[in-house]
């Protein structure tokens, strides 16, 4: 008698589904995920995985982790990242060494694919969670990620 068995099973599964949505309905008042954006602009915090723009974190001594290996530049599919580098004498060892001059990031061309961040061997660049990126002038979208006068954090290349 699988005919009546089917009906029983059908009603049971339908009620299971309705109980799931019913629980959501009851708890919706406190669990609403909607952000009423312009109203809560002051305390709106984006979630960690949100891809706002690429930034290069610096520590308090104005040191970053970028070695200038150019892997991010190679990984970028649309030429968003541009690294200007030269060989300078390292004051500690006295040897000539590759160092970045400017890590240029064109936010206007970026598609937020994240391949540069995956490619970076030293975790020098990462995602920021800001999203209000609109400007009135296109040139403001070209950013230099390393701060002026910054240098490589010691111990990154080891």
């Amino acid at each position: 008698m699988s005919y009546f068995g089917d009906i029983y099973k059908g009603i049971k599964t339908l009620l299971t589904g309705m109980s799931v949505t019913g629980k959501y309905f009851i708890t919706s008042r406190k669990g609403a995920i909607t952000q009423q954006y312009p109203d809560n602009r002051d305390n709106l915090k984006m979630f960690d995985r949100f891809r706002g723009e690429v930034v290069m974190p610096h520590n308090e001594n104005n040191e970053h982790r970028c070695t200038g290996c150019q892997k991010c530049e190679l990984a970028c599919p649309n030429g968003t990242i541009e690294i200007i580098w030269d060989r300078q004498i390292d004051p500690e060892t006295g040897k000539k060494k590759k160092m970045i001059d400017k890590h240029i990031y064109h936010l206007g061309m970026c598609t937020m694919c994240g391949l540069c961040i995956e490619a970076c061997p030293t975790d020098a660049i990462k995602w920021a969670q800001n999203f209000e990126n609109s400007v009135y002038d296109r040139t403001k979208l070209t950013r230099v990620l390393n701060k002026p006068g910054s240098k490589l954090m010691p111990g990154v290349e080891d």
Binding site: T21, Y24, F25, S28, R29, G31, A32, I33, T34, Q36
Partner: peptide, 10 residues
């Protein structure tokens, strides 16, 4: 409104 509450919206 009901749809919003079922989907955890406002």
């Amino acid at each position: 409104k009901v749809a919003a509450w079922f989907q955890l919206r406002i």
